[in-house]
Amino acid sequence: MTFAIVVFPGSNCDHDAYHAVKHVLGANARFVWHKETNLQGVDCVILPGGFAHGDYLRTGAIARFSPVMADVVKFAEAGGPVIGICNGFQVLLESGLLPGAMLRNRSLKFQCEHVLVKVEQTDTPFTRACRPGQILNLPIAHGEGNYYAEPEAVAQLERNRQVIFRYVTPAGEAVDAGNPNGSVANIAGLCSDRRNVVGLMPHPERACESALGSADGLVLFESVLGAVKEGAVHAR
């Protein structure tokens, strides 16, 4: 299995993602510069965290027009698994692969801390190895992770079970006390209506080894490895 890790100018979690899938998970990984337009032979695309194009204008707004994104959209539309982490999630929102937008954190601070995230749905390529309701300890590091969508859009996400990660308290409750950034409905991560595109603000790739404080993030990459190996998900 081969992961493609897209590198935008300003990406800074690309090497973390590479390390996680190559050295910890044991899969193949290759960097794909944002000007490349060939995702051939790739089984999963990772849009990593960072500050693509300096976050100019809006987070993800310029990255959306990077040449590689046309192929990422094609790969996603063909059913291939795509995960956007932090800034990668913001790119997915701007590109329209996932609905909604990000606002400045309600604290106005860059929030850099470990948070608890509950797995709400396990029928996506990136959560299929999770237990329903499993709580993951993952780090966040963002200034604009305050997820927003119009109330009708949020209701539709809930109806379609597209909210797959929610910020929770240690008791597992998705209440304000467990919400680090003000996201509507404590939303930390979403999937597309076809479930193959996933975006989340927390950084699973930075939490794949206990030496880093948590290994809870590895299950996302194990999930997609299993999904690809079993032929449960692929771009056709």
């Binding site: 204008l57 809006r58 929102l93 701007e94 609905p99 937008a101 606002l103 969508a149």
Partner: peptide, 8 residues
């Protein structure tokens, strides 16, 4: 298309 994000 670019300057504003119509979602917000």
């Amino acid at each position: 298309k670019l300057l504003a994000n119509p979602v917000i």
